[in-house]
Design a protein around this nucleic acid. Structure first.
Lengths: 112, 112
DNA sequence: TCCATATTTCAACGAATATGGAAGTATGGC
DNA sequence: GCCATACTTCCATATTCGTTGAAATATGGA
C-alpha cells in the first residue's frame, strides 16, 4: 500500500462523524445501509452526510450501489485490512520480542 | 478506547510527515531517535518537526525522554495496538464469515 | 406527465491545521 | 560565567476542512 493512500484513509477516518459512519457500516457487514438510514441513525444533515460518505468512498473505505431510490453504502473490509497491515509493517525490525505485544493484542481483537 | 481518543490518534497519523515519523519510530523500536536525527532523516525543519512530534506525543502515540541535550522519541506500541483493536471492534456482528478476511490479513501481517 | 422521496452538488462561510521565522529554554563543555 | 548545540514555543500567514442553505439530479408511483 502506498503512503499517500494510507494518509487518505487515515484522514477519512480522522473525524468523529466519519469514524462513526464507518464503524456503523463495519457492524452492518456487506449488506450496508442506505444513506438516509445512516443520516437518521447518526442525526446528521443529509447533505453533510453525503459529503462525508463521498470522502470515505473516495478513500476506498466504502462501496456504494443504488437500490431503487436509495444509495446503499457498505464498508470495504479489504481497504481496512490493507490499512492495518500497512500500519503494522516493519514494526519490530526483525526482533520478535519488540512487537509481540502488538501481535497479541491483534489476536485478541479477532472477533470471530 | 474512547471514540475521541481514536479520532485524535487517527488525526495525528493522517498527515504524510507525521505518518513517516511514526513509521520510522516503529521501525526503531523502544530505542527511539533524537528529534534532530528524525529531522535530518525526513528533511523537515526542526520547529515544524517539533510541532508534529508534540501532536503525536499528545495523542499518546510517542513517548519522549531527555538524553543529554537531545530529546529522544519512541513509538508507543500499546497506543497503536489499542487503536487497531478499536478499528476491528464489532467488525462482523457475530458472523465469522464476514470478518474472516480481516482476521487472515492481520495474521499474515504479524511480522514476527 | 406530475409529484414526492432520496440523495447529491454548489457556493460560501467560519474553524481548524500546517508551516516558517524569530525568540526562548535547557544542557554540556570550556 | 560564557558559548554552542538541541529543541521548543510563539506568532503570523496561507491553506485546508466541515457545515449549511439552496438548487439540481435520479427514481418510483399515481
Amino acid at each position: 500500500m502506498e503512503s499517500n493512500l494510507a494518509v487518505q484513509r487515515l484522514s477519512a477516518l480522522a473525524q468523529p462523524n466519519r469514524l462513526a459512519v464507518f464503524r456503523c457500516l463495519i457492524r452492518c457487514g456487506p449488506a450496508g445501509l442506505p444513506a438516509g438510514d445512516i443520516a437518521r441513525l447518526l442525526d446528521v444533515a443529509p447533505n453533510t452526510l453525503s459529503a462525508q460518505l463521498t470522502l470515505l468512498a473516495q478513500a476506498g473505505l466504502l462501496t456504494r450501489r443504488r437500490d431503487g431510490r436509495s444509495i446503499v453504502y457498505a464498508a470495504n473490509q479489504d481497504a481496512m485490512s490493507d490499512l492495518i497491515v500497512y500500519l503494522l509493517e516493519d514494526c519490530c525490525a526483525g526482533r520478535p520480542d519488540i512487537c509481540a505485544p502488538i501481535a497479541d493484542a491483534v489476536a485478541r481483537a479477532a472477533c470471530c
